[in-house]
Write a protein that binds this DNA or RNA. Structure first.
Lengths: 136, 136
DNA sequence: CCTTGACCTTCCCATCATGGGAAGCCCCAT
DNA sequence: ATGGGGCTTCCCATGATGGGAAGGTCAAGG
């Protein structure tokens, strides 16, 4: 099967498949007589694996680690679990960071009249004027 | 004051100050006789404004909008509020997305023994083998 | 006066993962 | 044989940031 079909079957764009090959994440695909990349079910499964890992937020480097473990039949499941736990923690850190931003913003939004007058605590705060801060 | 001092006073790196100028987010700074950029308290305040907006997760484009509103004395606070509310919603969307990933991962982590045996539902799932899915 | 070190300038490159597009070759059906 | 769609490689762009090189400038101290 050609790259387009592999793309449709795996949910990974042709561009990305070539990119993964160029960066060494996946081995070079076989080539037809005329230079077209060819893929079989095994390669498609690998691409799907990558796609799912990406969907779970793993960065490429960790996807590479997961792929290596996947291919290593003598792996310890603990190693896989550690990678996954680290990713849970990484997601948690980013979630907390964004929730903090969101809470601050909600506070400011709440304090803003939102009418046709120009006075706005949101801008005042961004401008450095501390209008109302929680007492320490 | 030179760019380094303005950087220290605003919390924006010199690199970024030049970048903001190059992209038109801020007007070109004044120049000393020898070509050094010069900044006053007003410019530093603007830089701090930008930094705070970035800290709240606003993309550069929205920061630009906020700056324009900040400088517009006849603005309606409703316009500012809308921008802030949109940012709250954008953050919410990303938070939910990451929480979804996290929940899936936690589920998989929970199902993985994490010992020295190779069997691992995490890899099985990524590989496309549906081991246990919640009944619909 | 000259050196030294800290600072400034511009310009180019890298990140991370992805998409867009051009130029040119290939395959299949009409 | 012709047309349309698919494939190839190569270059460029994103968004926001940092790194670094090559060269000019400033202030302090010898």
């Amino acid at each position: 099967m050609n790259i387009g079909e592999a793309s449709r079957a795996s949910g990974v764009s042709s561009k990305m498949i070539r990119y993964y090959e160029a960066t060494g994440l996946i081995p070079p695909a076989g080539r037809s007589g005329s230079g077209y990349r060819t893929y079989g079910p095994k390669e498609v499964q690998t691409l799907r694996f990558i796609r799912r890992a990406r969907d779970l937020g793993f960065p490429m480097e960790k996807v590479s680690d997961l792929l290596a473990l996947w291919h290593d039949r003598s792996r310890a499941s603990a190693d896989v679990k550690h990678l996954a736990e680290a990713q849970v923690a990484a997601l948690e850190a980013r979630i907390v960071e964004m929730q903090t931003m969101q809470a601050t913003l909600r506070h400011l939004v709440h304090a803003c009249a939102g009418d046709d007058r120009p006075d706005c605590p949101i801008l005042s705060d961004l401008g450095g004027i501390r209008t109302a801060s929680p007492a320490p």
